[in-house]
């Protein structure tokens, strides 16, 4: 655990400030990704099992293939819960284990679908976190008067609160696109593989939760945007924020 000196805005004069060990946060962020994979696969299996109980194989195929709008009872409550309610809607196909057992729904959840399901899950988790963070840390800030103020708040205050450093570079085309570059992004900082280990690809899922945090924070401050993150070289991360025109309320 690291005990760094406490810096603004969460200083000791803030009566409701509370602190968490940075190692705790790191472990949580690390563990979140495999957890999202497990949840996505498990939900898939259950959705498939439920589908095999359906009356006809054709029904089962459509149920497993298409977006399931109302998950079978027990799935949403047992694993989804809370903010994940809306996330339970999109199941891709079947997981590999379910594909072997379920005779009727032989569709295997391919990588693309699994990726989408996990992305959605992590992104929605981050979205909820971002909303709360924005509400909490924008409290003692001066007022934001335009979108750039909000983005700056994101790059400075929020980034420090979550990743303990500021964004290194911020660029904009002045038409609603903002590119945030962090040269040493904390969640990616300690990653290493042997040469040719496709480290960048494998690091990608770790950017989805921060994506959601950014999107949630922006949404809480009245900016609706799509956020996309990528990494070209390992400890660095690039976040691209595209604000959706007409939806901003600032």
């Amino acid at each position: 655990m690291t005990f760094q000196p406490v810096m603004p805005p969460y200083n000791s004069s803030d009566p409701s400030a509370s602190f968490v060990g940075s190692s705790c946060l790191d472990f949580l962020l690390i563990e979140m990704v495999p957890m999202a994979y497990r949840v996505a696969n498990e939900l898939e299996t259950q959705a498939l099992d439920a589908a095999t109980y359906a009356v006809s194989p054709s029904n089962a195929a459509t149920l497993a293939g298409g977006p399931v709008t109302s998950p079978p009872p027990g799935i949403g409550g047992a694993t989804g819960g809370g903010s994940m309610k809306s996330g339970a809607g999109t199941y891709g196909g079947a997981s590999s284990t379910a594909g072997a057992t379920g005779a009727t729904g032989t569709r295997k959840m391919d990588e693309e679908e699994e990726r989408d399901a996990v992305f959605y899950r992590l992104e929605m988790l981050g979205y909820r976190v971002g909303q709360g963070l924005a509400e909490r840390f924008s409290r003692d800030r001066p007022r934001f008067n335009d979108t750039l103020d909000i983005i700056k708040f994101l790059c400075k205050d929020l980034w420090i609160a979550v990743f303990r450093k500021q964004v290194d570079n911020l660029r904009t085309n002045h038409r609603g696109v903002y590119v945030l570059t962090d040269n040493t992004f904390r969640p990616l900082q300690r990653m290493s593989t042997e040469a040719g280990g496709q480290a960048v690809t494998r690091a990608q899922p770790f950017l989805w939760f921060p994506c959601g945090v950014v999107r949630g924070a922006l949404a809480a401050m009245g900016i609706h945007a799509t956020v996309h993150a990528e990494s070209t070289e390992l400890p660095s991360a690039i976040f691209q924020i595209k604000t959706i025109p007409g939806s901003t309320q600032q």
Partner: peptide, 9 residues
């Protein structure tokens, strides 16, 4: 009436 608006609207 007195009012206050947060940064989140």
């Amino acid at each position: 009436c007195y009012g206050y608006e947060t940064n989140t609207g």
